[in-house]
């Protein structure tokens, strides 16, 4: 594999509040290769969306990047001045948000929003931008694009609007698209279409995707690799097949076990006891240890690092060579 499109190292995001500094993302690292789809899963509040927001440089105060670095095709981007970062957004990194109903400005025609974005990033005339906008709309599957381009957002259905949003995110041919829960707000029947469209568009262009979702079905279908997040940390990252079929981390196991399956008919779905800690009360050591059925002394004091395990990497002391050795001796 050549140089990754996105390389995140020890990224830490903090919120400075009156009652102290809250660490929302705790030293996470991951890479996305060109054309690769990385799924990011986790519960609400695990830091998935925040990671995406930090990468595209749209953290709002009091949130700030407190450490680590983000590289786009090898070039560091987390310390760029705001003007340069802005020129990167939309051009090199596109973003798709959750709710297509609110992502488009209701007072501007769909075409005007496309033309505006295209002309911001590419040296084209208004006519060329408009032509490109029509082509894009056709490509994302909007029927009669030369007519619909002059429509208002409220004249489009949710699925159609998300197609427009995709067109907007892809209009300058970015290297990376961050899709933040792109299908959560859509009907199930439309979800599959949008995911298929996102996959096709990115494959054709060789665009890498960071797909943030809590829908394991979407991940299993779409992603090449998947990162599981818990309380602001990546607990497991690896090829999607491995993580879904054979999760290593106790949290990932619980997560996969809680997916209903058509083939097996279990009495009850697995359930992870308790709930994710609040940011102000993340436990010492492994953040998951209070809920972990396998927790032992070390988990209470030492924060686990990502360890090689099978095809992926896991942040769990269960997989540390020392621990395994010690456990074996004890037995």
């Amino acid at each position: 594999m050549n140089e990754p499109v996105l390389s995140v190292r020890d990224l830490t995001v903090e919120f400075v509040t009156r009652r102290g500094t809250l660490r929302a993302i705790d030293a996470i690292s991951f890479d996305i290769a060109p054309g690769e789809v990385l799924g990011v899963v986790g519960e609400s509040g695990a830091g998935k969306s925040l990671t995406g927001t930090a990468v595209i440089g749209l953290l709002e105060p009091p949130g700030r990047i407190a450490g680590g670095e983000i590289r786009l095709s090898g070039r560091r981007i987390d310390d760029l001045p705001p003007g340069e970062m802005r020129r990167l957004r939309g051009k090199r990194i596109g973003m798709v948000f959750q709710d297509p109903l609110t992502s488009l400005n209701p007072l501007f025609r769909v075409g005007d929003q496309l033309v505006e974005t295209i002309m911001t990033h590419l040296p084209v005339t208004k006519e060329e931008a408009r032509k490109r906008a029509i082509d894009l709309l056709a490509e994302v599957g909007i029927p009669a694009p030369e007519r619909r381009i002059d429509g208002w957002p409220h004249e489009f259905s949710g699925g159609m609007r998300q197609r427009v949003v995709l067109a907007l995110a892809l209009c300058a041919e970015p290297d990376l698209v961050i899709a933040d829960e792109p299908t959560t707000a859509l009907d199930v029947s439309v979800q599959a279409q949008i995911i298929a469209l996102l996959k096709r568009l990115c494959r054709e262009r060789g665009t890498a995707v960071m797909l943030i979702t809590h829908d394991m079905g979407v991940i299993a279908e779409t992603a090449d690799r998947v990162a599981v997040m818990y309380a602001g940390r990546i607990v497991e990252i690896g090829p999607v097949r491995e993580v879904v079929k054979n999760p290593q981390h106790p949290y990932a196991k619980g997560l996969m076990g809680s997916i209903p399956s058509l083939e097996e008919s279990r009495e009850r779905l697995l359930q992870i006891e308790g709930s994710m800690p609040r940011l102000a009360a993340i436990p010492k050591g492994c953040a998951f240890h209070p809920r972990c059925p396998h927790a032992f002394a070390r988990c209470h004091v030492e924060k686990p690092v990502l360890l090689e395990s099978g095809a992926g990497r896991v942040a769990c002391w269960l997989y540390d060579g020392d621990t395994v050795a010690r456990a074996e001796t004890a037995a």
């Binding site: 957004r89 596109g94 973003m95 992502s103 505006e116 974005t117 911001t120």
Partner: peptide, 8 residues
């Protein structure tokens, strides 16, 4: 937010 993310 989306307008910002598009780099306007």
């Amino acid at each position: 937010k989306f307008a910002r993310a598009r780099g306007l």
